[in-house]
Structures are given as C-alpha cells and as structure tokens.
C-alpha cells in the first residue's frame, strides 16, 4: 500500500500518460450548475498563476524563440536572420566545448551524487540513534552549495597553495594547482556537486521509511542475503524515488552556473575547461550583447534538457516499479 502512495504522490508519475487522472480530486459529483460555479471560483484562485504563466513563461519562451532568429543586440532593432544563429553553432568551437563540458559534468555529477546519497541513506536507515544529527550535517551542504560563498571557498581550497594541497603535503604529495589546471578544474566543480548529496539522500530516507518492515521480515525468514534483499525488495520499491531524483538531478545539473563562474572568474577557463553552456550563453548575451545567439543557445539547452527528460520517461517502464500498474 505504501508503494502505491509513493507512486501516486510522485510528481513525475503524475505527468506520465498512464496516470492522466492522477491530478483530479476524488469528490462526489454534485449538481451540474454547482460544480461549474465552483470550478469558476477555482479559476479565480489561479488568477496570479495565469498571469505569471502567460507573461513570464509562455510569452518569454515564444519571444526567445523569435530572438534566436534575429541578430538582436539590445540597442539596434532586431533583424530577422533565419536560422543563422543555429548554423553558426555548427562551426563554433566554443559552443561544442561548452556542450562537452556540460555533458561531462552531468554524466559524472548525477550518477555519483545518486549513488553516494543512496549508499548513505541505506547506512542511515538502520535506525542509528544519531540519525537526525547525521541527516542534519549531510543536508547542510545542499543548502549552502549553490552559493557564491561556497564556490569561493572551493576555489581557495583547491588552489595551488590551498587546503587540499596542504593536506596532501602532510603525506608527502606535491599536488597540482587544481582550479587553474585544465585537466582538474572541472573535476573540482564535479566534486562540489557530489558534496551536495544530502538533498537526494533525505528523499531516499523518506522513501525507505515507506517500505513496510514486514517485507524485510518475510525476506529474512526466507533466508535472503543482504544483497538479495536490496535487489529484490529495496530497489524495486524505491525505484519511483530513484527515478524522481534522477530526473531532477539531470535537469538541475544541466543548469549549473555559479561554481563554474566563480572558479573561473567568469571566463569559463582555464582553457575553457569550465565553459558550461549556461556560462557561454551568459557571455554571449550579457557580455557581448549578442542576445540573438544567447537566445539560440538557451533554446538548445531547453531542447537538450527536454530530450534527456523524455528519454528518462521513456526508459522508466523498464525499471521503475509502480505497484498499481503491474
């Protein structure tokens, strides 16, 4: 039963076509006139949202699509130039570099963060006395990690004469200048992402708590090993939560900006090794005032995130387990 709760409550499950009705309230039908009037009152409550979604989401989306087909520079009138901005990307080495950097970051930070958060959640769920203390400590980085302050600290920690090299020197290792070395710089940004494993961990812990103890007891009576229990009880019942963390992890990772900006001083360096797509579109739009090209880059980001999310949804039927649907 609790699995069903997870499935119903999972916001992403609500989006999948098989759960098209998940959003509707279960209420006894009343008279036709009554419910229509109530419906109109409901729409009144949504009034601010309607204005927001039209003025601040849909209109800007359309406008960005239009600007991406122009050479707008904020000063002179935009000229329509067709798909020139998109064609320009094909031969723009820095664009491809930004895709490579972003892709590398996403492919390393998302899986490692998920594995770390699940592993720690599994260790914590045994009911340690100090559970709430550890949960508190491990969650803190998630709250601080997106800040400029932490990015600054990170930059200092991984600089040539920073904390990390100070620690390495204690064991006789002469470390490189991590943040200013193109081979390692992106690695430090990925580490900063993994450091924030606490947020998915908290969600995993809540998910683990919903798995009925009786299933574990039954598995234990059957003599199942720890690994068998994990594979056959924990993983399937937790899969909707893993899916949720995975999808949101990807979406957020593609939009990472602050650490790369601070660590590289806004340049995306060294040698463009921290040139995230968000940073590149910032440079193009708000540095070079090439709003047309920046809008095109932003749309590419939207399309990439949309595709990755769509692929995630398409693949979920192979591994995500919703009790009420199988």
């Amino acid at each position: 039963m609790s699995k069903k709760l997870i499935a119903e409550a999972n916001p992403l499950a609500a989006l999948s076509p098989r759960a098209a009705n998940a959003g509707s309230a279960k209420k006894p039908r009343q008279g036709q006139g009554y419910s229509a009037r109530r419906g109109r009152i409901g729409l009144l409550f949504l009034a601010p949202w309607f204005v927001g979604i039209l003025l601040l989401v849909i209109a800007p989306l359309i406008a960005s699509a239009y600007f991406s087909l122009t050479d707008y520079d904020l000063i002179t009138r935009p000229n329509f130039i067709g798909f020139d901005n998109y064609e320009r990307m094909a031969t723009d080495d820095r664009f491809w570099q930004s895709m490579k950097v972003t892709g590398t970051y996403v492919l390393f930070s998302v899986p490692f963060t998920l594995i770390a958060s699940l592993a720690v959640a599994m260790l914590l769920k045994g009911g340690l006395k100090a559970l709430s203390f550890f949960r508190l400590v491990f969650y803190l980085p998630s709250l601080l990690g997106a800040s400029v302050a932490i990015a600054v600290v990170w930059r200092q920690m991984f600089s040539g004469d920073g904390l990390i090299n100070g620690l390495l020197a204690l064991v006789g290792i002469d470390g490189p200048a991590w943040v200013s070395n193109p081979d390692y710089s992106l690695g430090t940004v990925i580490l900063l992402a993994i450091w924030q494993f606490g947020s998915p961990m908290v969600i995993f812990l809540a998910g683990l708590k919903q798995i009925p103890e009786s299933l574990y007891d039954a598995a234990a009576l059957d003599g199942a090993s720890r690994i068998q229990v994990f594979r056959n009880v924990t993983l399937p019942l937790l899969s909707p939560v893993i899916f949720f963390n995975l999808v949101l992890g990807f979406i957020n990772a593609f939009q990472a900006f602050t650490p790369a900006f601070i660590i590289s001083g806004g340049s995306g360096g060294p040698a463009d090794s921290n040139l995230f797509i968000t940073l590149y579109l910032f440079q193009q739009g708000f540095g070079a005032l090439d709003m047309g090209y920046a809008a095109a880059l932003a749309w590419v980001l939207v399309i990439v995130v949309g595709l990755v999310t769509a692929v995630n949804f398409a693949l979920q039927k192979y591994w995500v387990f919703y009790e009420d649907r199988t």
Partner: peptide, 9 residues
C-alpha cells in the same frame, strides 16, 4: 524548464 530561456526575454 531551464530558467535561462525565460530570463533572456
């Protein structure tokens, strides 16, 4: 939705 696409417009 990545916010950048909104923010530019």
């Amino acid at each position: 939705l990545p916010k950048h696409v909104r923010l530019i417009s």
